[in-house]
Design a protein around this nucleic acid. Structure first.
Lengths: 337, 337
DNA sequence: ATCGCAAATGAAAACGTTTACATTCGCCCC
DNA sequence: GGGGCGAATGTAAACGTTTTCATTTGCGAT
């Protein structure tokens, strides 16, 4: 039923070897016969059986992406970045997202084994012990956004620390001193790094001012709660730095409800630059992370490992963030209505 | 290097046939030997070569998703829906997104041929002539969100028409009569269906009122422009229905800038229920489409076609939308501050 | 004890490629 | 004219599975 290389060979009156050579662009075939074979192949709509091919070449031309249960923009931008980079190299992309715990992640990983040449892994459940247990033979992998330090795999991280540091520096540049942080969930790597950046920048630029950290968990609701707590303090901060945009939005509503003006009374900033950041009022000053680049660079790194396993050293790369200044930080109040 | 079924067989002192049977859960193998084989397999970290398997079973256990160059929430929700449904059935997901034109889409489709058991296709470039040209052998496919009518493939659509119809009915229920539509791009299927729903509902519920359609293109900027045009009319509409949320947001800013109150002076609604809809003020009444369900149902449909090719009839299914009522339509003004 | 039968296991073919090796062919050079 | 050589092509093995068919084994019935 399906047309195979033999059908093409028969029709073109050559051996299967010649068909293979012609179609794979080897140089030892006459231009004449190449033409003939190519013609027959398209006429017959021949498409090679990838399984048979990978059986012998030991390559699948596919890379896998293991992603956490991620919502929204972040997820799609990441996949887009990976996909674009993969396509540019003629690679296919096998995705497995949304697994909730370590065992699910492990299952997904095992299932992908043997179907891919390498993997891009971003998962909070993939930690040191996970990797030890799985000990994934010699499947090349690049880990994304992980606190792990491993000598086996390259790592591609977002500079959460640097972004937070820069944001605090910016706020201090705006004249604010008492800057509170609404932190992310406790065991989240991104959250921890942002917290670290906040602390470091405070220590550096406002050493006399004590830090103030409210606990949040990256949800809008926790941001709202933190906002109300802030308002109840006897000494209110001059600026609030939420560890992500959605908490900033939640906090913003708490402030608005209490008729506290942003940024006049309290400045407010976020992290991530999700689309909503532009739409709240005042628009949110935030930290932009180029997620698409993250995916793209990670894939490129993986490909390099694939193509030159010998010369490629394991590396840890960090992707810069940039600060997006809008009205909520008080730096551009002059443009406010 | 890689451990094969032979290694397992040797180690377990059985034939490869028995290993295959044991691991695939056939019933003709002693519980005793099954245990032994399973033990050896896990100890050796044996993972079957998918290529070799698919070579003989003629199944890849993989389905492909061909998606347009989509940004944001929609994209990720769709993939999530597909992925979850696929995993539930032990299927893998091969994605190819972001192709800009028909030839790119065709290339992506061809590249996937032979690697997948079936495909989920959503692409504006996949039209009647495209399918005719490609004539994809007998690869089962399900088309998503397409105006196409074909006897070869099942189709899964979002009820854009019904959603728009219901929204207009709702606005009329709120007491509005002169309702303007900010339409989407001209050759977009979603846009056309929403326009059709608007017109039908107007004709049905407000037959004496003339319709008013402003041209937009699904961008914030076009919504903003349309908003300013509306304000310049000698007779302003009582309500504006933007064919997507992002245009509604753009329009909202135009109204705000002109100190027109929403919903008191003009009501405003959107379509899609993107996250931003909740965050603008007033929060946007809109039409929610369950994108995750779309992906999920489409995959389920495909699986059915795969498993029972004979009995499964080609079908066109339409996925309901629901109206999400927030403050911007004037129905809940009483809850406003 | 022998036969027959079912259950368990093994041997080998088949799937569609790629590629190392063998073969053919035409041609140039002595 | 024959030897040698390089280019083009063909032959066949190999990849790792699944599955058909054959074989062995154990056991109950005669």
């Amino acid at each position: 039923m399906a047309v195979t290389i033999k059908d093409v060979a028969r029709e073109a009156r050559v051996s299967v070897a010649s068909v293979s050579r012609a179609l794979n662009g080897h140089d030892t075939v006459t231009e004449d016969t190449r033409q003939r074979i190519a013609g027959v192949a398209t006429r017959l709509r021949y498409v090679p059986h990838s399984g048979a091919r990978s059986l012998i070449t030991r390559r699948t031309q596919t890379i896998g992406a293991l992603l956490p249960d991620l919502h929204g923009e972040f997820f799609s931008e990441l996949i887009r970045g990976i996909d674009v980079a993969a396509r540019a190299r003629g690679l296919h992309l096998l995705v497995s997202s949304s697994h909730g715990d370590a065992s699910e992640a492990a299952a997904a990983l095992r299932a992908m084994q043997g179907r891919v040449d390498g993997m891009l892994v971003m998962s909070p459940h993939v930690d040191a012990s996970f990797l030890r247990d799985q000990l994934l033979a010699d499947l090349p992998m690049v880990l994304m956004n992980t606190p792990l330090e491993t000598e086996h795999y390259s790592i591609m991280n977002v500079d959460n620390y640097g972004g937070a540091f820069a944001m605090v520096r910016h706020l201090i540049g705006c004249g604010h001193r008492r800057i509170a942080l609404i932190a992310g969930p406790e065991h989240n790597y991104d959250a921890a790094e942002r917290l670290r950046g906040y602390c470091a920048a405070m220590a550096r630029f406002a050493p006399m001012v004590s830090t103030q950290v409210m606990q949040g968990d990256f949800t809008e609701e926790s941001g709202n709660r933190a906002g109300r707590e802030l308002l109840a303090l006897k000494v209110r901060p001059q600026a609030v730095f939420a560890a992500n945009d959605i908490m900033a939005a939640g906090c913003l509503y708490a402030l608005k409800e209490a008729d506290v003006r942003v940024p006049e009374d309290i400045a407010l900033t976020g992290f991530d630059d999700i689309p909503i950041a532009r739409f709240v009022s005042p628009p949110l000053t935030t930290v932009r992370t180029r997620i698409t680049d993250l995916g793209q660079r990670a894939l490129e790194r993986l490909v390099q490992t694939l193509e030159e396993p010998a010369t490629t050293q394991v590396s840890v790369q960090t992707l810069e963030c940039e600060i997006v200044i809008r009205a909520s930080c008080g730096a551009t109040t002059s443009t406010e209505a």
